[in-house]
Simulated assay, not measured.
Amino acid sequence: MGGETKAFTLAQVSEHNTSKDCWLVIEGKVYDVTKFLEDHPGGDEVLLSSTGKDATDDFEDVGHSSTAKAMMDEFYVGDIDTATIPTKNKYTPPKQPHYNQDKTPDFIIKLLQFLVPLLILGIAVGIRFYTKSQ
């Protein structure tokens, strides 16, 4: 990696997307992997499918060895202009109504909805037995 490094836009890197000219962006660096396509253990299609975007996640997901990472130096051609890479949207959960931790009013209403009919039934059965025994 000589003195001055060249900066490429994502559009420039995206132009190199064939088996005869293949560039990748990994961790902000641009690599010309054209000569490595035939030797890549995962096949050339894996590399070709990662052109035109930031391939860092694809690269990391596979879990490359330290030897594979060391090999990258020989394919380095410059850095990516990070302003040209679209930012990833951070997941924002949907807005939900405020959770009311004080459930006392709801709990009392549900308890009464269960107990009042039960009490009425108990009174009715009690009156019936009381009047039959008289």
Results as ranks from 00 to 15, higher is better:
residue 1 M to H: 09
residue 6 K to Q: 14
residue 8 F to R: 06
residue 9 T to Q: 11
residue 9 T to H: 11
residue 9 T to Y: 04
residue 13 V to C: 09
residue 14 S to Y: 00
residue 14 S to M: 00
residue 17 N to D: 15
residue 18 T to F: 05
residue 18 T to R: 13
residue 21 D to H: 13
residue 24 L to I: 13
residue 25 V to W: 08
residue 26 I to S: 04
residue 26 I to L: 08
residue 26 I to E: 09
residue 27 E to Y: 09
residue 27 E to D: 15
residue 28 G to E: 13
residue 30 V to E: 13
residue 30 V to Q: 11
residue 31 Y to S: 04
residue 33 V to Y: 04
residue 34 T to I: 09
residue 36 F to N: 05
residue 37 L to S: 06
residue 37 L to F: 09
residue 38 E to R: 07
residue 39 D to P: 00
residue 39 D to T: 05
residue 40 H to C: 03
residue 40 H to A: 09
residue 40 H to E: 01
residue 41 P to L: 08
residue 41 P to H: 11
residue 42 G to C: 01
residue 46 V to H: 03
residue 46 V to P: 01
residue 47 L to W: 06
residue 48 L to G: 11
residue 49 S to F: 12
residue 49 S to V: 04
residue 51 T to N: 04
residue 51 T to C: 10
residue 51 T to P: 03
residue 52 G to T: 01
residue 52 G to R: 12
residue 53 K to R: 14
residue 53 K to A: 03
residue 54 D to E: 04
residue 57 D to Q: 14
residue 57 D to A: 14
residue 58 D to E: 10
residue 59 F to T: 08
residue 59 F to S: 06
residue 59 F to W: 14
residue 60 E to C: 02
residue 60 E to H: 05
residue 61 D to T: 06
residue 61 D to H: 11
residue 61 D to S: 14
residue 62 V to Q: 07
residue 63 G to C: 07
residue 64 H to I: 13
residue 65 S to N: 07
residue 66 S to R: 12
residue 66 S to F: 10
residue 66 S to Q: 15
residue 67 T to P: 00
residue 69 K to F: 09
residue 70 A to V: 04
residue 70 A to N: 13
residue 72 M to Q: 12
residue 72 M to P: 09
residue 75 F to E: 06
residue 77 V to E: 13
residue 78 G to H: 07
residue 80 I to Q: 01
residue 81 D to V: 01
residue 82 T to W: 06
residue 84 T to K: 03
residue 85 I to A: 09
residue 87 T to H: 11
residue 87 T to Y: 03
residue 87 T to V: 04
residue 87 T to G: 07
residue 88 K to L: 11
residue 88 K to P: 05
residue 88 K to V: 14
residue 89 N to Q: 14
residue 89 N to K: 15
residue 89 N to F: 05
residue 90 K to S: 11
residue 91 Y to N: 01
residue 91 Y to A: 05
residue 91 Y to D: 02
residue 93 P to K: 13
residue 93 P to I: 07
residue 94 P to C: 04
residue 94 P to G: 05
residue 94 P to M: 08
residue 95 K to W: 00
residue 96 Q to C: 00
residue 96 Q to S: 06
residue 97 P to C: 03
residue 98 H to K: 11
residue 99 Y to I: 14
residue 99 Y to R: 13
residue 100 N to L: 11
residue 100 N to H: 12
residue 100 N to K: 14
residue 100 N to T: 12
residue 101 Q to N: 08
residue 102 D to W: 03
residue 102 D to I: 04
residue 104 T to N: 09
residue 106 D to A: 12
residue 106 D to V: 03
residue 107 F to T: 15
residue 109 I to G: 02
residue 110 K to F: 02
residue 111 L to N: 12
residue 111 L to Q: 12
residue 111 L to G: 15
residue 112 L to E: 03
residue 112 L to W: 04
residue 113 Q to H: 00
residue 118 L to K: 01
residue 122 G to D: 04
residue 125 V to P: 00
residue 126 G to K: 02
residue 127 I to H: 02
residue 127 I to T: 08
residue 129 F to M: 07
residue 130 Y to V: 02
residue 131 T to Y: 05
residue 131 T to V: 14
residue 132 K to M: 06
residue 132 K to H: 05
residue 132 K to I: 08
residue 133 S to D: 02
residue 133 S to V: 03
residue 134 Q to P: 01
residue 134 Q to C: 02
residue 134 Q to F: 02
residue 134 Q to I: 05
residue 134 Q to L: 10
residue 134 Q to V: 04
